[in-house]
Amino acid sequence: MLTAPFEYRRAERVEDVIEWLSDETRETKILAGGHSLLPLMKLRLATPAILVDVSALRELQGVQEDGEVLRVGAFTRYVELARHSLINQKASLLSQAANVVGDLQVRNRGTIGGSLCHADPAADLPAAVLALEAQLVILGPNGTRRESAEAFFMAPFVTTLGRQEILAAIEIPLSTQNARSTYLKRPHPASGYPVIGVACLIDAIHNQTIGTARLAITGIASTAFRASAAEAQLVGGRLDAETIAKAASTAAINAPLDDDEHTEYKQQLVQVYVSRALQQVAAQED
């Protein structure tokens, strides 16, 4: 299957990309790993006139500690997220989520920036960046702006990204680097995308009192979301069977699910997967 014809441009400078994206007569799209965009173009659901390859942009590369945050370049591929020692140590939740995206070949191409900007409600990484309370660093005609992951996702496939904006990096606070975390996914048997994915980050184990609890859920609602009521219930308690059961049913009751014939099933999935994710974290060794 061929895509519609397009002009290919390999960007060397971010300024050029911002300028090219201003073209109102010819639709211009950023190409990262291409693992969402190219399938859409092959189906002619997307027919950009110009594709801008951002793989060579310095601003989108690299993983480093920068003051209070771990900065992950938008062009970092899943395979790198899964393996990078800094990410493993400081934001292991992101590595865990990246490691279960698609298959090995997909993980060798897809990027964190592409996943977040595509904003598929069934994507894995949104749950991880929500639970890590990441900030997105966005470049545009007016310079750099930062936005929380929570504010970034507006609707299925819709983000706050303006037409001339580029996601440059994801900044993850180091304040939760010592917390326990897990990403628990139930893959759809055919597509491999999550039917539900639960990202869970807790700063306590065993009998300790919980100070920070984060639960973010993807795949099941129109965007990934934080289970705030369940989080609030966990804080101050301990990760015992009773607390876990309560938090899981709170998450299920409060999940922003569409009201349709599947709602009950989805609530049950939320309840079971939040409960399992919390149990996994509780069982982690020191």
Binding site: Y8, R10, L38, K42, L104, N108, R109
Partner: peptide, 25 residues
């Protein structure tokens, strides 16, 4: 459609599905 993997090749030593990579990439 990027599902089956029959088109897998190595790109700089890494397995990729060559139906979902542009030659220019």
């Amino acid at each position: 459609t990027s599902q089956c993997g029959a088109c897998t090749v190595l790109l700089d030593g890494e397995a990729v599905k060559s139906c979902t990579v542009l030659a220019v990439q």
